[in-house]
């Protein structure tokens, strides 16, 4: 069914308000949109890795999740949800499940790119019928903004501080979307909560309703870690996408690449960086080389993606 913003927002909310995530945080928007893609009649078992989203939405004795929810540990939401999905399969086989249940795992970039990578990889490789959603805010926000392998180069974090000698994180971001695409699973998508949420919604719907494992890497800005004003959330997400720092695309069966959003005017990555306090130091005099380096890397990754999508 074609995406209809007005219809989509009329669907019942599956993540209740009143949770404790910061104002201007991208993560709960991502979760709500993903859940919106569920058919109203379908039940969901949702897993959450330890991180900002989990601790803010499920503080005993309250939960924001209207579906069933399980938090196990930081690094194992992939395996945890795969166990729940296996339980569902056996009950279906035994004729004990009357309705359809969908399985969705949410993990931050720390819980997904780093400590939970093995658990994610295992779950995808084994072929469980589940969706793993990484909400990527580019650092360990819950413990106070430490670097992850999803943190962009030169970002100032509390374990890669921009100091007098070392100017922030020294390594490039791991391209996790590509890592997972190379598992040759049915569906992989990179997306962001942007505009009327069409891209995110449609990909979530495909991910949830494509049989077998699916992975979504979703940019989820964080005003605390990125240091922007909370009302700028949507604007900053758009800058990430329009600069091709965060391209929107999908990969079917690890082979068929579709770029789902082509920026009309590819803007300089400096526009995205300038909006954030964590990159303040790269705009200091003498640091121009950093912006140049970042631009070069963004361009090269974008060109590579164009090639993969047959659009180069």
């Amino acid at each position: 069914m074609a995406y209809n913003f007005k219809e989509a927002v009329k669907k019942p909310e599956r993540l209740a308000g009143g949770h404790r995530m910061c104002a201007g945080c991208g993560a709960p928007i991502v979760a709500r949109q993903v859940l919106r893609a569920l058919k109203p009649e379908d039940h969901a078992v949702i897993g959450g890795a330890t991180g900002c989203m989990e601790v803010s939405t499920f503080l005993y004795p309250y939960t924001s999740w209207k579906d069933s929810f399980i938090h196990n540990a930081f690094e194992n939401v992939g395996a945890t949800v795969s166990g729940a999905e296996a339980a569902y399969k056996v009950l279906k086989k035994q004729g004990k499940m009357e309705y359809d249940t969908k399985f969705i795992a949410f993990g931050g970039d720390g819980g997904t790119y780093d400590i939970g990578l093995q658990s994610l990889s295992g779950a995808m490789e084994r072929g469980h019928d589940m969706v793993y959603v990484c909400y990527d805010n580019g650092a360990y926000m819950n413990t106070g903004i430490q670097r992850s392998s999803g943190t962009p180069k030169y970002a100032d974090t509390t374990t890669s501080p921009a100091g007098k000698v070392v100017p922030g994180k020294q390594q490039w971001r791991k391209d996790l979307t590509e890592v997972v695409a190379n598992h040759f699973i049915p569906y992989v998508a990179q997306t962001a909560p942007m505009g009327n949420m069409k891209d995110l919604y449609e990909k979530a719907e495909k991910a949830i309703y494509t049989p077998g494992p699916a992975f979504m890497n979703v940019l989820a800005a964080c005003p605390r870690g990125w240091r922007y004003d909370t009302p700028d959330l949507m604007e900053i997400t758009k800058l990430a996408v329009d600069s091709c720092y965060w391209p929107l695309y999908e990969v079917i069966n690890g082979r068929e690449y579709n770029i789902t959003y082509m920026p009309k005017n590819k803007i300089p990555v400096a526009d995205f960086l300038k909006a954030q306090g964590r990159f303040k130091h790269v705009f200091k005099k003498g640091n121009e080389y950093m912006i140049e380096e970042i631009q070069k890397e963004v361009d090269s990754r974008w060109e590579n993606l164009l090639k993969l999508a047959g659009q180069a």
Partner: peptide
């Protein structure tokens, strides 16, 4: 479930048992 580690074995057991 032929998991990729014992960490995932116990994680999957937790998910499965909680699932019912």
């Amino acid at each position: 479930v032929a998991v990729e580690s014992e960490h995932s074995a116990m994680s999957a057991c937790i998910g499965a048992q909680a699932a019912g």
